[in-house]
């Protein structure tokens, strides 16, 4: 499988700025998902294998009974889907709704971006026929919706996502611990946060979550200004969560800030790697289709790994039988 080209150069992707102008969160999610589907066929992602467990392009000889007509209606393309009852995926979206997510330099906040991404992922998963749940948090857990695939559940989820951010700090450990306690069966955990908090406090919970057998994908959402820190004039900088202020000359503070940020992100990366957690860093100016793409790719890779593990013992068993 070849890696897709740099998505920023693609003109078929929807600009996040334009996307955010859509007020309705569900509509926003639909635009992204459908744009994603259309983009898969029109994008330069040629050669990209669509063989993933849930969908596959129709080829001659496939049983037309497995065609997904809804996808055809939207995209005029034939796709074979797997049986829905074969999915049984429980996807939990763990969304950071703290005040640090209310920062944004592009006209919209990280929280908006994360909300949109969460809505997109939940819509995508829901369309897959999988259950999707939600847990929002700041310093405490604010909203919790169990993973369901029922009528009206998606609507409730969107409503929960639309609640504004609050809280003075970010507590990543508590929601992870809570999810680990609640969700017994294996599922997919998608964490959406800026992770601007001490990483040491969530290592334990992440490891516990990973030890439960959950598949964890982490999306670290940062604003471009946070990543580049290209402020010019000295000013009183105020913390969005605590309200603490300090006088800062960006030209003097930038180097040190970037070093610390990089160190923090590296720490997060190494922590995720240690526990087999997929980490994707997104900036809020990145089209959400690419995030969805990363989500799908991650799922594809994981399936492939699982299949390989399953097939190797079978092949070993067959070889064993043949050998006998």
């Amino acid at each position: 499988m070849t890696l897709p080209p740099n998505p920023e150069s693609s003109s078929s992707l929807i600009s996040p700025h334009a996307l955010m102008s859509i007020r309705n969160l569900e509509l926003r999610a639909r635009v992204v998902v459908e744009g994603f589907w259309s983009g898969i066929h029109r994008s330069p992602y040629h050669g990209f294998s669509a063989e993933f467990t849930e969908y596959r392009a129709y080829t001659s000889g496939d049983d037309p009974r497995y065609l997904d007509w809804r996808v055809f209606a939207r995209s005029d393309r034939y796709f074979i889907k797997k049986f829905e009852d074969e999915t049984n995926l429980r996807c939990y979206l763990i969304a950071d709704n703290s005040r640090s997510m209310t920062y944004g330099s592009t006209g919209y906040t990280k929280a908006e971006y994360a909300r949109t991404l969460a809505a997109t992922l939940s819509y995508f998963v829901y369309l897959q026929g999988d259950g999707v749940g939600l847990l929002t948090f700041d310093e405490d857990i604010r909203e919790y919706l169990p993973a369901r695939h029922r009528t009206g559940h998606l609507r409730n989820l969107m409503l929960a996502l639309e609640k504004p951010a609050s809280g003075k700090t970010t507590n990543l450990g508590a929601p992870l611990k809570r999810i680990a306690e609640i969700v017994r069966k294996r599922g997919l955990m998608v964490v959406l946060s800026d992770f601007l908090a001490p990483i040491e406090k969530l290592e334990r919970e992440l490891s516990a979550l990973a030890a439960c057998g959950h598949e964890i994908i982490v999306f670290q959402i940062l604003d471009r200004a946070e990543v580049k820190f290209e402020f010019g004039e000295a000013a009183m900088f105020q913390d969005a969560e605590s309200g603490k202020t300090l006088f800062l000359d960006p030209s003097m503070a930038r180097k040190d800030y970037l070093r610390k940020l990089e160190s923090h992100c590296a720490h997060l990366r190494s922590t995720c790697q240690r526990f087999g957690i997929a980490l994707y860093r997104l900036t809020t100016d990145r089209p959400l289709e690419l995030a969805l793409f990363d989500f799908m790719r991650e799922r594809m890779q994981r399936k492939r790994v699982l299949n390989r593990r399953v097939q190797q013992p079978r092949a070993a068993g067959a070889n064993l039988q043949n050998a006998k």
């Binding site: 604003d223 946070e226 900088f237 300090l246 800030y257 940020l261």
Partner: peptide, 10 residues
């Protein structure tokens, strides 16, 4: 006054 997400690295 400039509001920033977090001053933990500043």
């Amino acid at each position: 006054r400039t509001i920033f997400s977090s001053l933990m690295f500043l």
